[in-house]
Structures are given as structure tokens and as C-alpha cells.
Design a protein around this nucleic acid. Structure first.
Lengths: 149, 149
DNA sequence: TATTTATTGTTGCACAAGCAACTATGCCGC
DNA sequence: GCGGCATAGTTGCTTGTGCAACAATAAATA
């Protein structure tokens, strides 16, 4: 096995680690958000993305990218949240094909209620992952990514 | 905003980065494996996990953990692969509740055919991710996790 | 041994996802 | 202005997934 083959295997192992950690965190968040606010992880992601957006409105396609979902899935996701009164669709004035989505007060409220649970669960999931030998190095690496030091 | 709040935000951002990179890689692998071998990512994961297992047999529950899938999803996943003749169920002699799965020659063959495409796509996806500013640091960190230096 | 309890895997059901086809609007060259 | 093409979003259909309930076997306890 040469150097080149090693690189392939290193990438594969990195990918497996990434996938495993992702699955662990997502599963815990899923349960936590479900019981705390009847929200799935993607639904929370939408509300959170909207809240971190200036003016609190995004187009469908931005939402699709933010959630890594297909266009059709995004449509139905927004439908669900709109039916629950958590956000509203707003027609674009300048581009009449486009549709903005905006958080309603109820959406903001639910997000604020869910956020502590989300954050605590994330912290707990990362702590659990650190107990797993294969995952620990990745958990350690995560907070070092964006520190502006 | 205090130090504690910063830690929360750092974790959240790390999680978003992890999720984004995971989604990007998975989407590319999905397309690639589909066209190369009519396999989904989880299906490939099963075949790969079995091939990296001594004796090439695993129990359902191990498979469920390796794929981060529920028990029922694992059952149906194994059904699909068995129907295609890529693996076989083998009853455990010592624990008659348990079921081993084992790659068939056809399964081994398909895996070997799919692996180059998988590895190449993974390399390409990581290269693409490195062009995205938010993802680049995580991409850089991945290969450093398991290097036995 | 008999009875309870835990574990392993499968099935019914409801739901969310992707793909392809569609509508509606914007944009470009003529 | 008009036909052709690209873009934004929605809908029909199929499929994979999780949860809860279940059957079968093992392990624990009396």
C-alpha cells in the first residue's frame, strides 16, 4: 500500500467519523426538539436561519441551501411551518416569481423557547461524543474552527 | 455577551459547519454511487462495513449502529440488498435470535466496482468544500484526526 | 423447573424526502 | 413587442425512515 492509497483511506475514515458524529448529534437534537417544541431538526434550522437573517426574511432557495434540502422538500417544510403559524409567505415585489418567508411572533416565541433546549442538548451530545474514542478528536477540533484568535 | 454565551454560539456554529459539510459530501456520494452501482450511501456503507469486518459477517444491530439507522430501517435495508443477491442472512447458531449478514461474491464484486468511484467522489467533494470559506477549516482538520504520527 | 424480564429482529402505519413534470414569471436577442 | 430560454416555486408519485406493537429466543430469578 503506497502513499496514495493511504490518502484514500485517511479520507474515507475521516468521512466515516464525520458521518458518525453527525448522526449522533442529529439523533439527540431530534428527540430533544421534538419533546421541547414539536420541531424536527430541519424545522428548527429554518426558524434559526430566519432569526439570524437581517430583516428576518429569506427566499425559498436560500432556505433550501441553508437546510440542504431539495426545492420540493423546502416547499412542504415551509407549508408545515406556515400551517402552524410560525412563519408567513410574502410575495416579492421586485421579482414576482420569488417568495419571501418571515418569522411570525409565534415563530420567534417558539424558537426562543426551543433554543435553550437545543443548545443544552448540543453540549450534551458533544460531551457524549467525546467519550467515544473515534469521535473525540473531531469533537476537539470543532470549536477551534471559527475562533477568531 | 459573556464567555459562556460565546461557547454556546461556537458550538452552534461548529454544528452548522459539520452539518453543511456532511450534507455536501453525502449529496455527491449519493449521485455518484447511484450512477456507478445503483447504490445509496447507506447501502454502500453496509457493504463496506461488511467487507472491513473479519469473516465478513455482522449482526443486524451492529449494522444498525454502523449506519446510524433504526432497527426497522436496517431490516429493510438488508432485505433490499438480499433481494439483489449482494448479501445473505445466516442464522446464528449460538444465539438463535441473532442473524448474521454476509457478503456474497456478487456483493464483493459490486463493492469493488463502486469503491473507486466512491473514493474519487469523496476526494472531489472535499476539494469543492475547501473552496467554501466556512467549510475549509473543517476539511483541513479531517485528515489530521487519525494520522498515527 | 417455572415465571418473569430483557434482548433481537420483523411488520403496520404515517410521514418526510427526492425526482420529474408543471406553471408562472423574468430575461435576452431579434 | 415577440418567441425562446432560464429561473422560482409547486404538485404527483414513489421510496426510505422512525415509532410502536409484535413474535421469538435468551437470561435472570424464584
Amino acid at each position: 500500500m503506497g502513499i496514495k492509497d493511504d490518502a484514500v483511506e485517511v479520507r474515507a475514515q475521516g468521512w466515516r467519523t464525520l458521518a458518525a458524529l453527525h448522526a449522533l448529534i442529529e439523533a439527540e437534537l431530534e428527540r430533544s426538539l421534538q419533546t421541547a417544541a414539536q420541531l424536527s431538526v430541519v424545522e428548527y434550522t429554518v426558524l434559526d436561519a430566519l432569526s439570524r437573517q437581517d430583516g428576518w426574511h429569506m427566499r425559498m432557495q436560500q432556505l433550501a441551501r441553508a437546510t440542504a434540502l431539495s426545492a420540493s422538500a423546502t416547499t412542504r417544510l415551509v407549508n408545515r411551518l406556515e400551517d402552524r403559524g410560525l412563519l408567513t409567505r410574502i410575495l416579492c415585489a421586485d421579482d414576482r416569481r420569488g417568495i419571501y418567508t418571515e418569522l411570525t411572533p409565534a415563530g420567534i416565541k417558539l424558537l426562543e423557547e426551543a433554543r435553550p433546549s437545543h443548545d443544552a442538548t448540543l453540549e450534551r451530545a458533544l460531551a457524549e461524543a467525546q467519550e467515544v474514542p473515534e469521535l473525540a478528536p473531531l469533537v476537539d477540533a470543532l470549536p477551534k474552527l471559527h475562533t477568531a484568535v
